[in-house]
Amino acid sequence: MSNAQIQGQLASAISSEVMIEVNKMNKWYGSFHVLKDIDLTVHKGERIVVCGPSGSGKSTLIRCINALEEHQEGDIIVDGIKLGKNLKNLDHIRTEVGMVFQNFNLFPHLTILENLTLGPVWVRKMAKADAIETAMMYLERVKIPEQADKYPGQMSGGQQQRVAIARSLCMSPKIMLFDEPTSALDPEMIKEVLDTMVDLAETGMTMIVVTHEMGFAKTIADEVIFMDEGDIVERNKPEEFFGNPEHERTQKFLSQIL
């Protein structure tokens, strides 16, 4: 495979503005050291794919960025706001950072439209009619506007995940985090979700994606990060990362999954 092919088909729109900055961040689950001295800078418009063996701390890292998990040492600065004990900051960060989960985490008791409008109406205090309009726009974008009145339980996994993406987008976040968005899906549904994410990447959204979909990483990533046992082992452009991995652990991992 030539470099030209590997290199993303997407023009990247990285600006010099820093969206996420992680400095010497450490996290423990009880006595287990999950994340070790993590340093990470993500610029506006940058699309980063995080990969690594299970238990390497990839999910924990992005959950820390969204303040779903507390970190014990170091700083995480998202869009200029430092994460800490300040609950008001936390709520603010969460509205700026969208997150898509492996298990969708849609609200099963609400229709798709209600799932999408809940945040804008209750958190952003948007008028209901405007919220519905925005929701329908995003449903069009993930190509399921006709499902607006269904409940999540009546949809396929792929459709649910696309709704979950639309739900996050309705809050007009500055950053989108994806925690293994295709791992719980049947193979034939993975593509529709990945296509949605590629569309999103084209809009210039800042994205961090934890995934095992290496084809996807090659297509959209500006940089690929490899994590192992709580360390960021390697960070590189995709063509370098896949064509010429530097670290021995990266080579071993890639040889196992490719």
């Binding site: 779903l68 969460r94 509205t95 989960f101 609200f107 945040g119 958190v123 952003r124 996050s168 809050m171």
Partner: peptide, 23 residues
């Protein structure tokens, strides 16, 4: 996951409980 889903759209404690969890 329901708590986390609610948190990611910025709902606070009462919003999460009243709109997502309790129903």
């Amino acid at each position: 996951g329901q708590f986390e889903g609610a948190h990611t759209i910025g709902l606070g404690y009462w919003g999460t409980m009243g709109l997502i969890i309790m129903p």
